[in-house]
Simulated assay, not measured.
Amino acid sequence: MYSNEDRQLAKKILEFSCELEKGQNVMLQLVGLNGIGLLRALVEHAREMEVNPYVQIEDTEIRRMLVETGDKKFWKGQAENDQLPLMKKMDAFVGVRAALNIYEQADVSKKANKAYADHFVDPVHYKERVNNTNWVVLRYPSEAFAMNAKMPTQRFREFYYKACLLDYTELAEAMEPLQARLEETDMIRLEGEGTDIEFSVKDQTWIPCFGKRNIPDGELFSSPILSSVNGHITYAPSVYQGKPFEYVKLEVRDGVVIDSDSSNNEALEDILDTDAGARQFGEFSFGLNPVIEEPMYDILFDEKIYGSNHLTLGNDYEIAPNGNESNIHWDLVCIGADVYLDGEKIREGREFIVDDLKSLNPENLLSG
């Protein structure tokens, strides 16, 4: 019916991440049929908790067909007549992303993506689900997923569950000294191969992430002061809107991208031209999951790579705002840059080098 690992994962999601209580409502959304085992485990555990599951199963090819053909009127109807009224009744949301082909939407036009984002994703997810439910989103392992990670299937499954079932309570404790430092910081600088960029985070809000919204988890994020970002940055491989990028390089002046280069410049320019906010930055984060070592073309994993940072193009989060508004939110990841807080080097490459932060290094977090 489902594996023991999926049983453990379902329990962690519903009890720890969503913090569900008897009689509450949870939407269980499966996108891609590959994750049916985990969905079964979630439904069974929800009923054991006397929680009310509302189950949605979406085929990824059907979703692609709808996104390709949907316009403003179509998506407003989908949101207002179906998804938004239901989401408003939910106490929690679990989104299992189980697509076998991460490039399924690669050929969807910019216009179609914008209609979907503006009139469905924004009202249903960004405005309602993100702000008014205990939500968690995760991927599900597959042979295709293992291939992107460049691992044999069985080793990838072992890696996947180790990353997802991390002791997040221990990670949360280890994050506290870093959060305390960042809350007193004005300027952050990243310096590494192809990267030399700085920005202010003075008086910004810092949010520790330890299994409450994403699985796997492990990041500490805020947002830069909009006009303060200056320099250049080189990012690791990424996939956005189904389009692959082997690298992305940006040059930034006073918070705005003024020049760029990538392995897919036509697609990059389309993304940067989405709106004014797409050329500015809505988030900055430290990746802190000690199990995740290398990029695997999946941002829910890649943004948590230990020894990484993501300086995100596009929309900010209301919980840690800087005023940037955009229809994109692209978590591009920079791995292994030295990190300076107000001139003090706290991380050399991927290793924290100051005593109060060394507990975040993998050899300490995974020692138990």
Rank of each mutant, 00 (worst) to 15 (best):
E219Y: 04
T205L: 03
L84N: 04
D107P: 02
A79W: 03
E184F: 11
F93G: 13
N52D: 09
D261F: 07
D71Q: 11
V333E: 04
V55C: 06
Y2G: 03
L100V: 14
I215F: 12
D273G: 15
E266T: 08
D355P: 08
P290F: 04
P53D: 10
Y247H: 06
E318H: 06
L28E: 09
Y54A: 05
Y126S: 05
I233T: 05
E246D: 11
D261H: 11
S109D: 09
L171K: 01
S262I: 02
A278G: 14
V124E: 00
L272R: 14
A146V: 04
L226N: 06
Q204C: 01
E193K: 04
Y161H: 07
S359P: 05
P141G: 03
E44L: 02
L313H: 06
A98G: 07
I271Q: 13
E191P: 07
N101W: 07
D331P: 09
Y161V: 07
M147I: 08
A117H: 03
L28C: 12
S285G: 09
L178G: 11
L39P: 00
L166G: 00
E283I: 13
E293Y: 05
E293D: 10
V291M: 01
S359W: 05
A276S: 12
N113E: 14
D118M: 15
G323L: 04
V252S: 07
G95W: 08
L341R: 02
E251R: 13
T234H: 07
K73C: 10
V51A: 09
L84K: 07
S359I: 04
S285V: 09
A174Y: 06
E173D: 09
R64W: 02
